[in-house]
Each structure stands twice: as C-alpha cells, then as structure tokens.
Design a protein around this nucleic acid. Structure first.
Lengths: 220, 220, 220, 220
DNA sequence: TATGAATGAGAATTCATTCAT
DNA sequence: AATGAATGAATTCTCATTCAT
C-alpha cells in the first residue's frame, strides 16, 4: 500500500544498459555457444526483461555481432599494447614477455572468451572468422614472427621456419584458453596457468631432448 | 498386389545400420555443432527414418557419445596398440610416432571435427564435456604422459613436469585442428600439415634457443 | 544553456493533438486493419511518442472507437449534404448527381477509408457495425430509395423492386472503394474512377442487353 | 494402468488431416481475421496439436494461402468448367448462369468469408493480396470479361467497355457478400439472396431507364 | 503534458522424442 | 525392425501497456 515500501519496478539506465547487456551476452555466448545461448538467460544476467534486449539489438544474431565487435575492440587494444611493449627487446626476453602478457592479460581474463567463441563459431560465421583473422590474428602473428625473426638474426634462436613456428609458439597458450573454457571443471587437480606457462617457456626454449640428445634432427 | 513381386520398402540390415548412422551423425555434428545438428538431417543422410535412430541410440546425447566413442576412443586405443606393437624406442621415437599418428589419423581426417566440436559445446553440455574428458582426453593424456615418462626414465628427455608438459606437447597439434576448422580458409598461403608437424617436432625436441643459449632458464 | 534560447522539445498543443492522432490512426487502421495496426506507427505518423496516445485514449480499442466516431461525423455530414443537394431533381439526373458526388467526395477522398474499415471490421465490432448501419447506411439508403421511387413515379425508371435495387445501384461504387484500398496496387492498368463511373451509369440506366434484346426477362 | 482404458493419444489420419485443418482454418480466419487468428485455435478445432499444422503447411501465411486456394480457386475452376459444360448460349444465358453459380457457391456458402477477409487484410499482407488478385480475381475477371466479349460479339450485349464493365457486373454480387458478413444482422427485413440476384440480373440486362428513355446516354 | 525506457503476456515456430501401425 | 505421423516443451520475437522522469 505504501508506495515507499514498494521498490520501483525498474530503473532508467539507458546509457548503462547496452554495456551491461553486452557483458552478460558475452558470458552466455562463451559458455553456451551461439545456438544454445538463451536470450532468457542473457536478460536474466543483465538484470532486464527479455524484451528489453530488443530495444538495443534487433535480434539474436545482431546481439551476437555486437558482442563480438565490442569484445574485439578490447582484444585489439590488447594486441596493440603488446605490440608497443614488445618494441625494443631482444628475442628470448621479448618472447617471454609476450607470452607472459598474453597469459595474464588475455588467457587469464574475461577477454579469453572471445578467442574461444570465435574459434567455436567460425564455421557458422565465416564473416566473423575472417574479420577476427584479419584484424586480430594477423597482428598477433606479425608480433610473434617479428620477435622470432629478430631473435634468429641476433643469434639467440635457431633458424626455424618462422611461418610455421609461430603457431607452435602460441599453440600451448591458446590451449590454455580452450582448457579454461571447456575442460578445466573436470580436471581433478585444476590447472595452474603460471606453472603451465613456465613449463611451456622452458620447453619452448630448451626443448625436450636431454642435452646429449640434441642435434638429432627429425627432418631429413 | 502380390507381395512377392513388390520389393520390400526397406531392407533388414541390422548390422550395417548403426555404422551408417554414426557416419552420417559425425558429418552433421561437425558441420553444424551439437546444438544445431538436426536429427532429421542425420536420418536423411543415413537413409533412415528419424524414429529409426532411436532404435539404436536412446537420444541425441547418446548418439553423440557413440559418435565420439566410435570416432576417437577406438582410434586412440588403436594408436596405443600400434605404438606398443611398433617396438619403437622410448622417448623421441615413440613421441614422434604418436604425433605423426595423431596428425594423420585425427587432424588430417574428418575426425578432426570432433575435438573442435566438443570444445565449442563443452560449456553447454557438461555431461558431454565430462564424457569427452574422461574417455578421450584422459586416454590421450595417459598415452602422452606415459611416453614422456618413459623418455625421461630412459634419459632421452629432460625431467620436465609431465603433468603440464603433455599439454605443451599436444598444443600445437590441436591448434592445427582448430586452424583447419576456423581460419584456414582465410590464410593466403594455406597450411601444410606435414610441415607444421616437422617444425613442431623439431622445436619440441630441440628447443628454440640456439645451442650456446641453452641453459638460460626463464625461471629462477 | 539558457533555457530561453533553447526551443522547447515539444509544443503544448493540447487542442490539436487529439485531432492529429485521430487522423494518423485512421490512416493506419485503414491500411492495416484493427488487429494489425501498430500504435507505434500511429504515434510515429502523428509525430508524438507512443505513450502520449494514452494521455488521450485509454487503450487501442478506445482509440479505434474514437477514430470511427470522429470520421463518421464526416461521413454523416457528407450524407446530409448529398441529401440536401439531391432535393428537387427528377430521377435520372438526380441519381447521376448522387453517384457523381459519392465517387468524388467519398470514394475519391480519404473518407473512403471509413466504409472500408467498417466493412472489414464489422464482424469483430458488432456495436460499431450497428452504429454505422443505423446512422450512415440507413440514411444513404433512404436517399437512393427515395430517388428511385421518385424516378419510377415520374415514369423515368422501370418499376424495379426498390428495396433490393438500391444495393445494385450502390454496389459498383462501393466496389470502387474496396478496390482502391485493396487491389489497386496490383492492377497493371490502374483504374480510372471517372471511367468506372461512366460505365457504371451507362449500364445502370441502359442495361447491358442490345436494344433488340430488351424485354427478355430473366424472371418468370 | 489397464492399457485398454487409456485411449490412444492420437490417430493416424494422414489423408484426412489436411482437409480438416483447412476447414478449421477457414472458419477461424473468417471469424477473427488473419492477424488475430490463433494457430492454437485452428489446431484445437481441427483436433490436432499445434505442431501438427506445420506438418502440412510451412507457416501461417502458407496455411492461409492453402485455405484460399482450396476455397476459391477450386471453385472458380469448377465454375469455369460448369460454364463450358453448360453449353449455354453466349451472352445473357452464360452471364446468368455465372452469377447464379457465384451466388450459390460462394456468396451463399462459408466461402464467402474469404473475399471479405482478403479485402480486410490486403493492406497488411500485400503478398497475400497479390496472390488473391492473381489467382482469384484474375480468373474471375477473365471469366466475366470473356463472357461479356462473347455476348458483344454475338450481338446480345451492347458494346460496353469490358475492362470496366466487369466490375459493374460483379459489384452487386460482392456487395451481397459484404452485407452478409457486415450488416445483415442489423437489417430489419433480412436479405433474400435469390431476390437480390433477380433484381441484379434484371437491372444488369435491361437497365433502370424506362423503355422510352433508352438512348439518353450519360457520356458525350 | 510528454516521453523514453521498460516490461509481461502472448504468438509463431522448431525439434527431440514417442506412438500406432 | 522400421517408420510415418503426431506432439509437448521449449525459444525467439512482438506489442500494447505502464512507469519514472
């Protein structure tokens, strides 16, 4: 009866809403995949009614695109930051720095949802995949390849085939992202990102072979 | 009128059916993703009625499990058996054998869709993810870890932390699968799986660091 | 900053608003029908916010009623004008005049929307239909019947059954209204209202039968 | 518990179903209008589940088209066939036959709801209106125009402008349909379709003008 | 008075699953 | 064993209506 006791049914939050919706949607899309993501749940997590989503995004696909676009910006920013930071260091130190940064700022943050999402949905959304490939992957690749090339030039690294080596370098780090979003919950012992990175770096630089085994090449 | 002259509308092929269904289902699941895969289409491709699927598999999830089991578990077991039978020397030879087998039998075949698929749908179907984790990942992990452990015991490999090293070993190979299904179409120069594996193995065993740089650890 | 220099975002036009809303609503109801008419569109065409409609009309149904009531007045006025003008003329000239006036002032004007709307929605709104029947149709019918009766009395018209003939007289003219609002857009050659009326009048007075065929009655 | 006491959840009625659905749908569409018609109710009246409708018709619009096609196109074809088979003399006899058939088979049957319905929804569903125009109106028009043309050629009819005369011919018959669905309930004396048709035919052939008035043309 | 923002109550449509044959 | 037919339980999207400003 007393209107004071009844909380308002909703608040006007026109500026904040779209942002909140995007964040909720990112989480749901990452967890569920595009097809299985329920707009009901997006709305619930964003704290709005389902119909409210349609005030800002025309339909599920548009919402999805907006999520990716928005999150891509963050990924791009991160890449740019890595690029700048990578600048002037020599090969090994620089590569260590890059992988550290990637693990901490991408794999270990909500940003990791985007690579996972794009990888998962690339087959269904080629346009999205192309954009991600051209804008994010190409830049990341350039950074890694540049670092490798400089390291080789400086005599720090062996003369590997850079065009393929870059995927070997980033592979275990991307696997960490996939693990985080897919299977971590089922691991008995969890997974320590720091430890994973340490082992990765050690093996990356020093190889698996015992010292006296080095030099036995696998290629003719 | 005469039932003898009229060919039967369907053949009894109880033995062949499940196999055909599994193949159709694999294709559809890989193309569409689990959630978007239509049993209608699986049935159509298998050349049976939708209801017939239920004679062999209790529901969609069970069908998916059967697909995975058929496609990967059997393969993994086979790989383990082959590896044992090959009489390869522990360590480098075994690991090379293993990764070759993986790249040829999984990454380079239609089966490669399965890991990508599971990764994409894991958040949505924990039961599915758990099944995959327990049945496929656990076995693959056991095989790799065993190989690593034997290599270390034999003095061929350095004493890395096997519990983490196994992901570093398989990471680049899994990345090849992801690339194949997500971004390969957008690469200018394509991607040669053989070359990828060669570089991977070289780096895996010998490390990136130039020989005179070895021993410089990244961790204190 | 100075509120004086900033023009108000909206004008207070309390008197004009309802009128504008009614006109917009009429157009939308005629185009879409009651059920499919969107209040969003009514508001847009009226240049107000959707919520503003509720300041004047309690809900969609009340708005609809108001539209019809308001537009009926114009229809009634028109009928009254026809009635007065029809006054003293003999049958044929008078009927020609009436149909001319109807085609020009109703069929050929926005007023035509109301008959179309009422015909379309009569089944769903019996109250509306009754009102229209009693107030508009009954008067129009009286005018036509009176004209026919006078024409017969004057020996200009044959002694047709006036109670049925009036619908035959007005039928083609109403069909023109229906055509205008329903199918005209799909006619290759369009439809010339003047020509339609001319043919109508010719056939109405002179009949279709060739002169030497006249007298062959269709009724025993 | 006793399976005998539990009635089967449904029957297989593959041949009868579509027909039953069409009849239920016709009734609902006519009563409610296209937009307000609920597929729920169509299903309920047809005695099937809502999803069953989609076994036979892809969506609401297709169901509606099927209703119209079934209800009218078949009838028109029948009319045309009857007309041809009747071996009536060109001109008056044929046209009389035609209008009789229309009044009996369309205006006097549940089919009469369709023209009224299409007219009401034409603005909202241009595709629907175009379909109706092309499939129904065009055929009806062709039949009438052909009959008129043959009558003129045979010297039974005056040389009217057939492109406009056809609407004058059918106008009063269509008005009967509209009356039936809109205002008949409010007429004191009801409306006798037979009488309406008789007066219509009489006026159509012989005109309203008294015999000695004939020849006074309304057009220069 | 006017409105942008928000929502609840549906509606059409889809699809894994089940039934009767 | 096999299937065509049927359905119930979602899920996306719409829109008249209401609220807070």
């Amino acid at each position: 009866m007393n209107p004071e006791t009844r909380p308002p049914r909703w608040q006007r939050r026109a500026e904040a809403r779209p942002q909140e919706v995007l964040e909720a949607a990112l989480a749901v899309f990452v967890e569920r995949g595009y097809a299985s993501a329920r707009l009901d749940e997006v709305a619930r997590r964003a704290g709005v009614a389902k119909a409210t989503l349609y005030l800002y995004y025309a339909n599920k696909l548009e919402l999805f695109k907006a999520v990716v676009r928005h999150a891509l910006v963050d990924n791009l920013d991160e890449v740019a930051r890595l690029q700048a930071a990578a600048g002037a260091r020599p090969g090994r130190e620089q590569l260590t720095f890059l992988l550290h940064a990637f693990m901490r700022r991408v794999a270990g943050s909500p940003l990791s949802g985007i690579p996972k999402l794009v990888m998962a949905e690339a087959g269904n959304f080629p346009e999205l995949a192309r954009f991600y490939h051209d804008e994010v992957i190409a830049r990341g690749r350039a950074i890694i390849c540049g670092t490798l090339a400089r390291g080789i030039a400086a005599g720090e690294f062996r003369a590997v085939d850079v065009d393929y080596a870059w995927r070997v370098v980033i592979g275990p780090a991307l696997l960490a992202i996939i693990w985080k979003h897919s299977f971590l919950a089922f691991e008995d012992r969890g997974m320590d990102f720091e430890r994973h990175l340490a082992v990765h770096l050690d093996m990356l630089f020093n190889g698996l072979a015992a010292p006296d085994q080095k030099g036995t090449r696998d290629e003719p």
